[in-house]
Design a protein around this nucleic acid. Structure first.
Lengths: 340, 340
DNA sequence: TTGTAGGCGTTATCAC
DNA sequence: GTGATAACGCCTACAA
């Protein structure tokens, strides 16, 4: 790709490479005419500075990397928008890669990010990720890393997470307040920290209100519409339909709703539903879906600022965990007339 | 970030840098013991090869870039999955950037991609993009570029597009066959080629069936739920409600549906609706939404293969345009009992 | 104002 | 098997 170099220009003009170089970095003294002559020639030959060579000297790539497990759901795209807002403003470019929920691809992404000399990394772990060796090594080498949303408990780096426990508890309590008693939780893969926290919040709410709480009420489902649909179909065909469902995210809730409606169940009459992440679809579906709103773009901004602090060396270097709060948006899928 | 170099290792072990280098690239002869000694020392010092320096010699980055305008809608994420499938398999990493529908950010992305030495570029243009100078220059320099979905007519590079004209025509004809007469089209920004094609297909269908076809029936709307909702609200409040709507994408159609339902219109009784892109939501909403299915992931794969051909220099170098076909998935939002 | 020369970290081609 | 040394493309003291 790179054919023309400053040498070619220098040769063509019978000047030294240093002069040519200076013509492009105008902090040096250089005669206006030679300068223009050089720029002219450069244009003629189609010269473009080789960024690789430049980076070998200056140790600044002004790149940061973001690795997310997927962007089929709207959650991560929204977070990324926040990340970009912060970094573009500071002159950094954001390189995005997706691991496709595969630990293997994630590792490849990680290595590739390093090869591209990113100055810092924002990661949301894939659901398959168990091995933290590479990230641990990176962290030991004092490479700036911030985890968000899908985090690992043990890695001593800064993290930005949602208060999943609390809002799972609130969401479940809301269902309880509506008079639902047999409540199930459709969970994301249990290996994720956020799943554990939501499960714990769910359990706590049931306990607090002295409702039955068995492991059978927590069903590892997935995060796609199809997952919610499949699990709900199973529950229906096994005759084990709950009175209410707290789903780990909106697509999962929507899938469950789809199956329920297909089989003639009335929502919220027969069964109440609450989702998570307050996606656009909550207001499109009928009945509209009650959901926990998460500040996605804000989460991106906060994670980005945390990383920026590490990169620029400003602020406290100690890893911190930011716990973000949200709100429960109550819509029709969960409002049952109180039995008096 | 990069502190330890092969020089440090060489000094520490009293060997030459050449030997150290050889220890890492095992295609050369080197005594096993020295080799292990070096690797050991490298681990001890925390040495990592500098990929930048390496790239200066070998001109291969094994990176390709993808620039998309947004990934809030599921369309581009699905395309990207196809792109990744092709490139990961061939050992390339895919760098994703999003222009956020801004021509300025797109240009920054473009420059940044070059700085990261991608070997080729897949681009779907932002809706603001007018100036093609940079891309034209890139193309003149024989840099591999493939445009997909959001393309520019004049740029002589390979393109992968959907047959928007034909499927817009089919979608509109479907509404006509259902007996709808006053049909409106909610369009994406008109500057996009795909908008123009869909508009032309829409017009052609009306013409063919001798239905009225004025400019007022084509409303530049946008591509988000909010856009469809806003435009439909305006139509309703101005009393100018059509019998059917062909929307440029599903979110836009869903937004229109939301407004219509809110005001008590019956779908498909009072008004029929067809969307575009067959997103997951089509089956969640009530009534389910008729939509044109596009082979998104397949589009990504094809674009990726086209780019790969250019990068590796295999295949014909002439720019070609691949026209992709889809299908109309008829659901409830557009099925009216035939008037007899 | 311009040229010379050394260096960034690595690989590759020579010798030895 | 190993060590010099010259590249890769660019920048920058230092000299001239």
């Amino acid at each position: 790709m790179q054919y023309v170099t400053i040498k070619d220009i220098a040769r063509a003009l019978n000047v030294s490479v240093a002069t040519v170089s200076r013509a492009f970095n105008d902090k040096y003294d250089i005669k206006k005419e030679t300068r223009e002559l050089i720029l002219e020639k450069a244009r003629e030959l189609g010269y473009k500075p080789n960024p690789i060579a430049r980076k070998l000297l200056q140790k600044h790539s002004y790149n940061v990397g973001v690795i997310v497990p997927e962007f089929i759901n709207s959650f991560f795209p929204e977070v990324i928008i926040g990340i970009q807002q912060v970094f573009l403003e500071k002159g950094y470019q954001v390189i995005i890669m997706q691991s496709n929920e595969s630990a293997e691809t994630e590792l490849e992404n990680l290595i590739s990010m390093e090869n591209n000399m990113v100055e810092g990394l924002l990661i949301s772990l894939s659901k398959d990720t168990r091995n933290m060796d590479y990230l641990e090594q990176l962290n030991r080498d004092r490479f700036p890393v911030v985890l968000f949303n899908r985090v690992n408990e043990t890695l001593p780096v800064s993290k930005v997470v949602f208060n999943d426990y609390k809002w799972a508890l609130f969401a479940t309590e809301h269902l309880i307040e509506q008079g639902y008693k047999k409540i199930f939780h459709l969970s994301a893969p249990r290996c994720l920290t956020l799943s554990k926290n939501r499960i714990n919040g769910f359990k706590k709410a049931l306990e607090k209100h002295r409702l039955p709480c068995s492991e059978a009420q927590i069903i590892e489902t997935g995060i796609l519409i199809e997952d919610g649909e499949r699990v709900m179909e199973q529950l229906i065909s096994s005759g084990n339909v709950p009175e209410a469902i707290f789903a780990t995210n909106d697509p999962c809730a929507l899938g469950a709703m789809k199956a329920l409606k297909k089989h003639g169940y009335k929502i919220p009459g027969d069964i109440g539903i609450v989702g998570f992440s307050n996606s656009k679809m909550t207001e499109i579906v009928e009945p509209s879906l009650t959901s926990v709103a998460q500040p996605t773009t804000e989460m991106g901004k906060i994670a980005a600022r945390l990383l920026l602090e590490q990169i620029t060396g400003t602020g406290n270097a100690d890893p911190k965990t930011i716990l973000m709060e949200g709100s429960l948006i109550v819509r029709n899928s969960s409002i049952r007339e109180k039995q008096s």
